[in-house]
């Protein structure tokens, strides 16, 4: 069992949890993920490790309450325990040799971009973080991100923080101004990663994206996580989750993430219904 030792709501539907997971905390590196199962009846879901504390043998996960499982997870509290946490899974991000990077996070993607920025920063690289949100009231991890970069730029779709625009606008501006990035790391919704990759291809800047796909086991067995990269089928869980953004077939990936849309919708309705009837 994996006890929840800290729970913090970051915005209306985003939650941070620190969870006991000794095996993961001892080994995890930026870019790796875990699979968790709440209880015997729960499904296995992948979540990227946002941070870890080797002394406390704990990891930090940040999730958005978008499906039946993440809703249930969001209803759990400090002191409760998760049935299973397994990891670290996936290949660690390959960040060696990067001297100046733009790390781009879109919404919840900032939770995954943050450890990458932190790893780069600790390795002595210059790091600019460009974080995009829909509006000012859902900005997360601002202080944490500021602590691990040279410059933090936050954009909002509606301009409510005073800097209206998309992350691609901000990135383009800095590239044009001669920021001299030798790598861009983009993590967020698939359309965001697609457009960042499209932009950086024009400038010939190496771009790493992190693919968050449907998967069950996370160890290479189900193949549900397959993505087409450079015309080849890859498994996000064992070959990734990081891939060359210039080679990923994002349109296919967007479609595949909707594989269980109907089932997920039904599960959400059932969950809300149970809540309405006084909880499960």
């Amino acid at each position: 069992m994996h006890r929840i030792i800290k729970k913090q709501r970051l915005n209306a539907n985003t939650v941070l949890m620190e969870v006991e997971a000794p095996l993961v905390a001892a080994k995890v590196k930026a870019g790796q993920f875990i699979m968790l199962r709440i209880d015997e009846y729960g499904e296995r879901i992948p979540l990227t490790v946002a941070d870890h504390n080797a002394e406390k043998q704990s990891i930090t996960i940040i999730f958005q309450e978008v499906g039946a499982t993440t809703k249930r997870l969001g209803e759990m509290n400090e002191g409760d325990a998760l049935r299973d946490v397994v990891g670290p899974l996936g290949r660690p991000s390959e960040l060696e040799g990067i001297k100046k990077a733009a790390v781009i996070g879109g919404g919840l993607g900032c939770a995954i971009a943050y450890p990458q920025a932190k790893a780069l920063h600790e390795a002595g690289a210059k790091v600019d973080i460009i974080a995009g949100f829909r509006s000012v009231d859902i900005i997360i991890l601002e202080d944490e991100m500021r602590a691990v970069c040279d410059n933090l730029y936050i954009t909002t779709d509606d301009g409510s923080n005073g800097n209206k625009g998309f992350v691609t606008d901000e990135l383009k501006k800095h590239i044009e101004e001669g920021a001299g990035y030798d790598a861009v790391i983009a993590i967020g919704p698939l359309p965001m990663m697609k457009f960042v990759s499209k932009l950086t291809r024009e400038y010939g800047i190496k771009t790493i994206v992190s693919m968050n796909t449907v998967m069950i086991d996370g160890t290479g067995m189900c193949g549900g996580c397959r993505v087409t990269v450079g015309g080849e089928v890859k498994f996000a869980c064992v070959d990734g989750p990081d891939f060359d953004g210039h080679l990923v077939d994002f349109d296919e990936a967007m479609r595949r993430n909707g594989f269980y849309k109907a089932e997920e919708k039904a599960a959400m309705e059932a969950h809300e219904c149970r809540l309405g009837m006084g909880g499960k």
Binding site: I216, D217, M221, C222, G223, G224, R226, T228, V233, E252, R255, R256, G258, F259
Partner: peptide, 15 residues
């Protein structure tokens, strides 16, 4: 083969 509705037997049986 990447269409929604194509499973490996491993995925189908594991589920």
């Amino acid at each position: 083969e990447a269409l929604n509705g194509v499973y490996s037997a491993n995925e189908y049986l594991t589920r």
